[in-house]
Design a protein around this nucleic acid. Structure first.
Lengths: 121, 121
DNA sequence: CGGTATCCAACTAGATACTG
DNA sequence: CAGTATCTAGTTGGATACCG
């Protein structure tokens, strides 16, 4: 993943989206940011499985790609806020859709309702 | 990426979607399959940047996750068809949305309209 | 035609520890 | 609080060659 965007568009726009949003916690981060501005610490708490380094990196990449805006308040103690840019907010419906799809997919597995796996039913 | 789905759902459903669809050419593959059943060779031609090994793997993973169905015709020369499962087709709107978003994102960069990158000039 | 086998290079995420 | 530094492990994607 993370193939150069310029290259991705030549093949398929969906790949652009994947390369921008494909990071392991990126969409989760965006989803939380959809709920409003968050501080670094809050995001850490919201995504407990990722450590600070990983989170920082994802956040920075998202910033690089113009998905979010990082605001540093030069004070002590430090305060940094992350907020979605208009571009970032523009993928609200996508995040919403993926969230729903992901939930549905997950329930297919764990629900025990019927198909447990690649049911050839 | 590709963090265990079971683990992903505990954090956020979007991560499930990412782990299932996050492979480098997966969404492109799905998108093409949305247009109808395809043979392996066709897919190779449609996604020229990926080699057979990569394509095979992606296809298999998609199959594992129940996104597509692989049909082998026991004949000579071999013939294998890939088609989306209902689950796979269910993400048509998502693929569509990502495609549109990706295209928009790409045009932001290449258009020369304004922001070229994270313009920290 | 439709893969598979082997090997490899790159990248990515994570652990841990430390800092302004 | 909000990172950064360093290092490592693991995974993914790719090249090439060969097989049924």
């Amino acid at each position: 993943m993370r193939l150069p965007v310029q290259r991705a568009i030549e093949v398929c726009p969906v790949e652009v989206a994947v390369s921008v949003l494909g990071g392991t916690w990126k969409l989760t981060l965006v989803k939380h940011l959809l709920g409003g501005t968050r501080r670094f610490g809050e995001l850490c708490r919201l995504v407990p499985l990722a450590n600070t380094r990983t989170l920082t990196r994802q956040l920075r990449e998202l910033e690089e790609d113009g998905i979010l805006v990082r605001t540093v308040y030069p004070q002590v103690p430090p305060k940094v806020e992350y907020a979605l840019s208009p571009l970032g907010e523009s993928l609200a419906p996508l995040v919403d859709g993926m969230d729903a799809w992901g939930a549905a997919f997950a329930s297919r597995l764990g629900d025990g309702g019927g198909t447990r796996r690649a049911g050839r039913t």
